[in-house]
């Protein structure tokens, strides 16, 4: 599998995968997409890279530790739902900044939550596929 063509292709494709997955993540609030779908795509991209370069290499290159990624994702999601408590509002109340960024859209705690989902999904899928393909 490990041929030059694949390696080059992946090197080019991976950023695209990640970019597209981010795009799906951010637009999810208004159009089909969202953290879960985005996360899956990003993970598939990284998985493809791992198939070509080997999992060990991929882990080393990106300093990925899947369980760590899961923990990070969960904590992002957790923090996002805790934020409103500091304003005396119930858990998970959506709080929004009053500005809209291009491509990303409005910033707010639900978005942050979705980012948490995105990260967890990446972690989970990588964890499973890395372990399985490693034997």
């Amino acid at each position: 599998m490990r041929t030059v063509i694949f390696e080059t292709a992946i090197k080019l494709l991976l950023p695209l995968f990640i970019a597209f997955s981010l795009f799906l993540l951010f637009r999810g609030h208004n159009s089909p997409g969202g953290g879960f779908i985005g996360g899956l795509l990003a993970a598939i991209g990284l998985f493809l890279r791992a198939m070509v370069f080997g999992t060990k290499n991929t882990i080393a290159t990106y300093k990925i530790r899947p369980i760590g990624i899961i923990a990070i994702g969960l904590s992002v999601a957790l923090v996002s739902i805790l934020i409103p408590l500091f304003s005396g509002l119930p858990l998970m109340t959506g709080l929004w900044f009053d500005l809209t960024l291009p491509l990303i859209g409005k910033l707010g705690t639900p978005l942050m939550f979705d980012i948490g989902v995105y990260i967890v999904v990446i972690g989970v899928v990588l964890n499973i596929t890395f372990i399985l393909s490693n034997g």
Binding site: H29, N30, P32, G34, I81, P110, F113, D114
Partner: peptide, 24 residues
């Protein structure tokens, strides 16, 4: 809820706790 994709809004806002459980 500032979102036009109702399904996504339900997932991350209206019923976000479900999603928290789901990623767990």
């Amino acid at each position: 809820a500032k979102g036009k994709n109702v399904v996504n809004v339900i997932l991350v806002d209206f019923r976000g706790i479900d999603t928290l459980g789901e990623i767990t």
